[in-house]
């Protein structure tokens, strides 16, 4: 615990304006069962933060707290504070719809809607009323698909169902769908776990590019992936945050034995 405390002290040293989201003492309960124990974690602007740890360690739970996706589960209760640009997103006065427009999410399994590719991407801008004309919408759809590095593959079949794409394409479509709303933060819950190596490489490449415009938090099972795409890494174990810091440092010289063991594959 003391190591974690020093880490936070170091974090607070960096400029406050570089922090996009901050979790303070976040605990999550599923009914009687506690899944997350007082986690303190900062997410820095325009960087990729990777959450790692063995299965059931609470990393996905923490991720879902960041845009209140846990609200959809009846028995789930969150305590503590998470801020976006200094505003507590669990404040009852906060509108979850607006929050999610600013903190988007990409899921483990590609989940395109049973609509055309175009409609999948246009869905977000439509519900949020981001455009006034068809031309504007077309523009958003195209730019989102381009940013998601899938435009070239689908530009000739925008009006075919999104479910007809391959797994990797579907996931990039889902990323395009998330980008189309112009969020500030994109949360990614093991976005490559259902994909083959080639598709994974494409998505990883994409994540790296997106960093310039968005803040990204990614949950991953793969150490290599965390090492490849992220700048910051946080290690979870049994619902607690074990260690966090710069990815380079974490993978070369971790502070805790636990992290060392996990990264070198001795458990997990």
């Amino acid at each position: 615990m003391t190591e974690a405390a020093t880490e936070i002290a170091v974090d607070t040293a960096i400029k406050e304006s570089a922090i996009k989201m901050r979790g303070s003492d976040v605990s999550v309960f599923y009914g009687e069962k506690q899944a997350l124990f007082g986690v303190n974690l900062d997410v820095r602007k325009n960087s990729v933060t990777a959450l790692i740890g063995p299965s059931g360690c609470g990393k996905s739970t923490f991720l879902r707290c960041l845009n209140r996706m846990n609200d959809t589960i009846d028995i789930c209760r969150v305590t503590g504070e998470i801020t976006l640009e200094g505003e507590n997103i669990y404040d009852p006065k906060i509108d979850v719809v607006e929050l999610r427009a600013r903190v988007g999410m990409v899921f483990q399994k590609p989940n395109p809607f049973p609509k055309s590719i175009y409609e999948n991407v246009a869905y977000g801008p439509r519900i949020h009323g981001l455009t006034k004309s068809k031309a504007e919408l077309d523009e958003i759809v195209e730019s989102s698909l381009r940013k998601a590095a899938i435009w070239e593959e689908v530009k000739d079949r925008l009006h075919e169902p999104g479910t007809g794409l391959s797994g990797g394409q579907q996931q990039r479509l889902c990323i395009a769908r998330a980008i189309a709303v112009s969020p500030e933060v994109i949360l990614m819950d093991e976005p490559c776990s259902a994909l083959d190596p080639i598709a994974t490489a494409k998505v990883e490449e994409l994540i790296d590019e997106l960093r310039t415009n968005f803040t990204i938090v990614i949950v991953t099972h793969s150490m290599q992936q965390a090492a490849r795409v992220s700048q910051r890494t946080a290690m979870f174990h049994l619902g607690k945050l074990v260690e966090e810091g710069d990815t380079d440092k974490m993978f070369t010289n971790p502070d805790t034995k636990l992290t060392q063991d996990y990264i070198t594959g001795r458990f997990g």
Partner: peptide, 27 residues
């Protein structure tokens, strides 16, 4: 209709009724 469809829509900031009308019912 799989839960992931709903998650996808909520994750974009859609309200429940928007999710129902534009994602669940078409599916």
């Amino acid at each position: 209709v799989p839960q992931t469809m709903r998650d996808g829509s909520y994750g974009l900031g859609a309200t429940k009724s928007e999710t129902i009308k534009q994602v669940i019912l078409p599916a």
